[in-house]
Amino acid sequence: MNEFITLNHGSGGRQAHQLITELYVKSFEMSLPLTDSAVLKNNGYTLAFTTDSYVVDPLFFPGGNIGKIAVCGTINDLSVSGAVPQYLSASFIIEEGFPLCDLKAIVTTMAEEARLAGVRIVTGDTKVVGKGKCDRLFITTSGTGLLKPEFEHISSGKLICPGDKLIVNGALGDHAIAVLGARNNLSFSSPVVSDCASLNHLIQSVLEESSKVHFMRDLTRGGLSAVLYELAHLSGSGLLVEEAAVPVDDPVRGLCEVLGFDPFSLANEGKVLIVAGAEEYEKVLGILRAHPLGKKSALIGEITGAHKGEIILNTLTGGKRILDIPSGVQLPRIC
């Protein structure tokens, strides 16, 4: 491991994975596999429990703000474990001199988002640090949700088998590009709006109708590539992905071309990968497409029995290549 923590350690790619497995998991004696939420059993009830810290620059961007991500992100982490999110905590680390009106706007968004999602923010904390000791505002939210026994397998993916289908609920990369465009030092303005949204209702509507959801993950840092990589390792299966089937909207595709970014590795805040049994994938797709947050849902690939632990991408043009986990933060290329 490098001597210092670099931005790469927070990017959701290879280095982040190393930090988690080599430091946290060992020190805290955590049980594997690592999932978006911990599954806790207590006197007959099963609880999903998760926590996440949110930092984003700028704090306000097209389609949301740091507060909206802080609520949606934790709700989504619980939801993809198969749980029904119920309660959240919210902790704020605020830099001295932060405008109160901005804090109010952010908290109002959080309250509104929680209300829409049907969860309650029930506890929290505030620390104010001196100027320069943090970058304006950091938020940490934790959440609990109830997990029915029949969905306990989802977060570990233990029912995944060859033939299962890979589904995403819409176009990729909107959040990352919206934030990039809003960042002050970039001189392009993009019409892209963040996809930041709570997915609990969408996911519940699928789980109510189908018992064949074998795995789910939200496609945040590291994007689709990181989740596919995790899925390949978790399941030990091969993955076959059709590049042409993965939805990416034109403005995002265009900006990726210009900047040398890979849309598969861009962060999303309202997208989920669902692995569904072959016998019910069409039903799952139908339910997703009937929901406002799943209109552009698409079948993007499948689990295979061959090339175990690897992701094969059938490229747009008919070629084949291995899809790798992103390494470090994406940097604009020189040429």
Partner: peptide, 17 residues
């Protein structure tokens, strides 16, 4: 001899074609 070409060759799986 152009990095852009190398990148495109990998990305589109040109070798496999």
């Amino acid at each position: 001899v152009c990095g852009g070409h190398t990148s495109a060759i990998q990305r589109f799986g040109i070798h496999s074609l």
